[in-house]
Each structure stands twice: as structure tokens, then as C-alpha cells.
Computed example of a mutant assay.
Amino acid sequence: MARAVSDLASHLGYWLRYVSNHVSQAFARKLEDRDVTVAEWALLRELYGVEALSPSGLAEKLGLSRGAISKLAERLINKALVVRHADPSDRRAQSLTLTGQGRALVPKLAALADQNDAEFFSHLSAEERAGIERFLRDVVERRGLKSVPMD
């Protein structure tokens, strides 16, 4: 006898992805108006409030390869939002820093992230929101997930 085939909607992952896609796409559209991608936003936010970070440090924080960080950094350098500095004691070592323009942009982008979050989740009580966050953080921890969601 053939086993029953489960419906798409019977999977929690289906609902997580359904919501996640809509939340992410709405945020990406908001960032587009500022000529920034979600991945670029994540890198900018990591640089905000710190003097400088190495590409390898950013790669570790964001769960990306060093090559991916280099490509993101290059795009942000071309947009005059980030600068690259060589370490005077070791010319091979580099660090990335926000420009004044980049530093001024981050709070504006953070406000868009807050707005996007509110559009999707403001109907939740503080208790419901905390419960969902606790559940998701538990899944991240148990599965050892490292890369920051950016697509």
C-alpha cells in the first residue's frame, strides 16, 4: 500500500519560507530605493559602530566566504559607502570602514528594516513575538546555523 504524500501546507518549513520570502522581498524593495541590496545592508550594519573590521572578520560574522565579502566590499567602495585600508605594519592585511556617507546611511536603512518588521509583525503581542523569536533562535542554535540570511 502506498504511503500518503503530505501536502505542502502541512510542513512548518513551507510556512516559514512563505512568510520569510514575503518579508525579505518587501525589505529588498525598500532598500532598492536607496540603491542597496540586503547583503550590502548586512555588511554596512556590521561595520556601523566599529572603527574597522577585516574582511575575514566580516566573513566570520556574516557566515560568508572571504570572496563574497570582497565582492560586496568592492560594490560598497564603488558606491562611496565603504573604504579599504591597508595595515601599515602588514601591507597584505586590510580593513574596511564606513565612509561618512555610509555611516549616515545606516540609521536610515535600519529605520526601513524596523518599518518592514512592523508592517509584517506589529499585530503580534510582545509575548507572541518573543515566543516566535525564542523558537527560531532555538532552531538556529540546535542546527548550528551560521550564515546570516541575505537573499
Rank of each mutant, 00 (worst) to 15 (best):
A4H: 13
A4Q: 08
A4T: 15
V5D: 15
S6P: 15
S6W: 14
S10K: 05
G13W: 12
S24W: 07
A26D: 15
A28G: 02
A28R: 05
K30I: 01
L31Q: 09
E32K: 02
D35S: 10
V38F: 09
E40A: 02
W41I: 07
Y48L: 02
G49T: 09
V50Q: 11
V50Y: 09
S56H: 02
S56L: 06
E60M: 08
K61E: 14
K61D: 14
S65M: 05
G67T: 05
I69R: 01
A73K: 04
A73Q: 06
R75H: 10
L76W: 01
N78H: 03
V82G: 04
V82S: 11
H85P: 00
S89P: 00
S89D: 12
R91W: 04
R92W: 06
R92Y: 07
Q94E: 08
S95C: 13
L98Y: 15
T99C: 05
G100D: 14
R103A: 07
R103S: 10
R103Y: 08
A104I: 09
P107Y: 10
L109F: 04
A110D: 06
L112I: 09
L112E: 08
D114R: 03
Q115Y: 11
D117T: 11
A118H: 08
H123F: 04
E127G: 11
E128A: 05
R129A: 13
G131L: 05
F135H: 04
V139M: 01
V140I: 08
L145Q: 13
K146G: 06
S147D: 10
